[in-house]
Design a protein around this nucleic acid. Sequence first.
DNA 1: CTGTTAGCGCTTTCAT
DNA 2: ATGAAAGCGCTAACAG
Lengths: 336, 336
Amino acid sequence: MNKINIKYLAKELNLSISTVSRALSDSYEISAETKAKVFALARQLNYQPNPNASGLRGQKTKTIAIVIPEIVNDFFSLVISGIEKITQEKGYYMLVYITHEDHSMEVSFINSLVKGRVDGILLSRSSEQDDYSHLLELNDKGIPLVFFDRVCETMDNVKVTTDNYESSVTATQHLLAAGCRKIAYLQAPRNISIGQLRMNGYLDALKDSPGKQPPLVLECTNDHDENSMRIKKMLATEKPDGIFASIEKLAVICYSVCEQLKLRIPEDVKIISFSNLQTASLLNPSLTTITQPAFDIGVTAARELFKRIEKKSTGGTAEHVVLKSLLVKRKSTSTR
Amino acid sequence: MNKINIKYLAKELNLSISTVSRALSDSYEISAETKAKVFALARQLNYQPNPNASGLRGQKTKTIAIVIPEIVNDFFSLVISGIEKITQEKGYYMLVYITHEDHSMEVSFINSLVKGRVDGILLSRSSEQDDYSHLLELNDKGIPLVFFDRVCETMDNVKVTTDNYESSVTATQHLLAAGCRKIAYLQAPRNISIGQLRMNGYLDALKDSPGKQPPLVLECTNDHDENSMRIKKMLATEKPDGIFASIEKLAVICYSVCEQLKLRIPEDVKIISFSNLQTASLLNPSLTTITQPAFDIGVTAARELFKRIEKKSTGGTAEHVVLKSLLVKRKSTSTR
DNA sequence: CTGTTAGCGCTTTCAT
DNA sequence: ATGAAAGCGCTAACAG
């Protein structure tokens, strides 16, 4: 295809292949003059080393893989953004694989990576209950692996997550402090640990509160109209004065339902929601949000991965980095 | 690192390296018996061919690159999703690079790919005005390149886009047909062709309408509060009875502002918006949306790319595939 | 049907 | 300071 390789440069310059190679890697045993000549020609011809050849030789690929359950999702988009930033800084390439929440796809993809296609892997697990022998194999093979968001608790790798439980407690306490006597929780349809953690935060905060109000959990589905109906019914029947939405989309539906029922926000009902992009809070400044540091999760996870890649020592102490969410109460818009 | 290579398999089975290689590629000149033995051992040891070695030998990498301006964006997430689907089907890997709308990053990344790191490239341009010599070089080097969304009109490669102009005309006509006498257009802060196309659709539709109402364009910014203020002022001053939002986020703000001003939707003002995920229409069924076939753009672009990769003939007739957007009027929610 | 061998482009001893 | 040569793991042309 492209004939501009080291051999060609060497011939053009009347140098040996190894001299050119060393010059390009700025070796100390090459004269400044020779280096200059080599660099000049390389630049002129836009010489690019063949990644397969150097990879084959040096056992590295300048490539990392990121494996996520889905991508049409603000949280994961932001994480990727963060990872990508660090990856670019390091001059690496980023392979992206989407498992669509399917554990078997995760397994087969990971297995396809064990043989030196990448120098390291960033993973958010598709299923937290299934087996993880494929991941143990990565450790065996010495391929650095860093978990983020959906981790494998029992494995000894670095994990980067957010404070789902704690921020959920905070959110609930926020509503309690605002005087809510009856707080409903809108549960997203996800049977994974982060969903569980968030709900536990809500439940525990209520349990520990002075009023000891009973929990009011509304299970939601993946169907908008269905959710809208359930929320409307719940609002009409139970008349909560506070709503805690576990994901942003539910907060948006909730806002719309409140309008329909002529419920004023925040006078009649206060809403708080987990959120990544704060679309919900565009609607009304009093839709307070708990914003996850998604971008920072990407940045942190990537940094941890590169530490391992560069140290070459796979082992190291297992760390669990927990990044704090932010309680965002937007300032009142203009002269509302 | 991992010692399980062809040589090792060969030794274990008392076969020659080439026999094993041929068996693994299911060559017709290997006995079924031998193949069976080889496959069995390969599976048992989870043998994976070294991608660098086969890449170096065969000049292919089973990898494509996708280059986009940003990723925290429903449109691009959906496109990636579509691309990823086809990529997985083909057994390829997907490299993702984000330019952050910076033309120079696009150039340097593309230049780093010219030397056989990928078998093909999918690109949405960061800047449609700047020079594209780096892209011409790809054609020279015979690396297949397919454009999507933000294309390079003057280049002879396949382009996959949506009908921004036509659907904008349709949207405007939709409002006209619904009886709107004064339609405002909310222009997103993007100085690229798709923004221009959308606005032209609006302008031309008005020009061609019986009433010949004058256009009313409100330029928006990247600041939510600022947008909210401008929209509010415009609604109060101009009192339009129809609003055409060029991006979904503006429709959401608009919805919120209408609530504040006690404007009923759709009785007082009708809203239509470009959209990818229909967040806006969660708010109110009468927020009609023009939904772009983002996922299909990914699928189509990827298919076109693989055609070129597999045909090996880079050339071919230049095609421009235009996918149609969908005018979505959601059914009324439940028993509203 | 199976084995031998020559590279793909690069890095890296080992010589000089 | 430079060159010769081996070899990373794989495929394929060329023998048998």
